[in-house]
């Protein structure tokens, strides 16, 4: 097991390094001019040169890279070209917002999809199965920003049972001090019940929208995996050997789990960078909104920082997942 963990961590590290290098050079290979964006396209050559020097873009790409890497080694992601503040600090407040959003969406999706998937597997071709098939087709790939807007129109404008999509808190509510950066956790820790309820009030719609999009594939995978196990030799054999039904059911669920978990891990990692549009729609200042600003402003250090953070977190998730799978399935280690 120890060797397996080490190997997985090693591969993850290599991937993170690979991504860091690729991002750094790809950004600089593309024909954008961040200096002109900053000082205006009509600025004098002197002003331009000065700005270029202050961003460190006058040095060769290679020396820019060594400077960047030596910063990384010290845990320094650099300073934003636009705001002038530390990238690490900015990401520290953006990341928890996204993490909270997608974790909740995920919990909701799993809570609904896994039982539904199991139910459809038990009655293949049934009414639920047919409905869910359509939904799986529908929700695997959808314009979530549009669904978000649609839900806002419906739940906020028409029914009035959701808040205006203007961020994590209502304008009048004083947010709790930033401890973890997650609105629900921070308000709970500080005992600010008003902030807590308001945060939850502002979260339910975006969480539901994301869960709505993500559930389709999870249901599909649960059903597929479950029916494969139900039709497997070993479940048949357990039944034929007179193993009690509840134990057979437990074996079935355990054996159906690995593909579902794998998919869940992939989806989670994917949502880290994929919640961009939902954050935009609901005006959450998470990683997604941060990355949009970084890209549109050609803020290279911020882009690099965002990609790095997302990569590290998702690789961490994959690692935990792989270890979990290795615990469930003894064949994985080989």
């Amino acid at each position: 097991m120890g060797r397996y963990v080490l190997k997985r961590v090693g591969i993850g590290l290599l991937q993170a390094i690979g991504i860091t290098v690729v991002v750094f050079f790809v950004i600089r290979a593309l024909p954008a001019d961040p200096v002109a964006r900053l000082v205006g396209f009509n600025s004098s050559p002197e002003v331009y040169a000065q700005a270029q020097a202050s961003l460190g873009l006058d040095a060769s790409v290679w020396s820019q890279f060594t400077t960047y890497v030596s910063g990384l080694v010290r845990g320094d992601l650099g300073v934003s070209w636009v705001t002038g503040s530390s990238i690490l600090g900015e990401l520290r407040s953006a990341l928890p917002i996204t993490l909270q959003l997608i974790t909740l969406a995920f919990a909701l999706a799993l809570l609904v999809s896994v039982p539904v998937g199991i139910a459809t597997a038990k009655r293949p071709g049934g009414k639920l199965d047919k409905t869910v098939f359509g939904y799986g087709l529908f929700a695997g790939a959808q314009p979530e920003f549009w669904w978000g807007l649609l839900f806002i129109f419906f739940f906020y404008y028409t029914l009035g049972i959701a808040p205006a999509p203007l961020g994590q808190y209502a304008p009048g509510v004083t947010p709790p001090p930033e401890i973890t950066g997650m609105s629900l956790v921070d308000s709970l820790i500080t005992g600010n019940i008003a902030a807590f309820t308001d945060a939850a009030w502002h979260l339910w719609l975006p969480v539901m929208t994301l869960a709505f999009i993500v559930s389709g594939p999870i249901i599909k995978m649960t059903r597929q995996s479950m029916s494969r196990v139900l039709g497997s030799e070993f479940i048949l054999y357990q039944q034929a050997s007179g193993i009690p039904a509840n134990k057979v059911a437990r074996s079935t669920i355990r054996a159906s789990l690995p593909p579902v978990l794998t998919l869940a891990g992939i989806l989670f990692g994917f949502l880290l960078g994929g919640a961009v549009l939902i954050e935009q729609v609901f005006a959450f200042n998470g990683l997604g909104s941060y990355s949009v600003r970084a890209v549109l402003n050609l803020d290279y250090p911020a882009i690099q920082g965002t990609v790095l953070i997302i990569t590290i977190v998702s690789l961490g998730v994959y690692l935990v997942l792989d270890l979990l799978l290795a615990v469930i399935d003894p064949r994985v280690k080989n």
């Binding site: 991002v23 880290l272 960078g273 990609v307």
Partner: peptide, 13 residues
């Protein structure tokens, strides 16, 4: 392993 949407934004923008 890249965040697809961000990479797409970077490439296009």
């Amino acid at each position: 392993a890249f965040p697809v949407f961000i990479l797409a934004m970077v490439l296009v923008a």
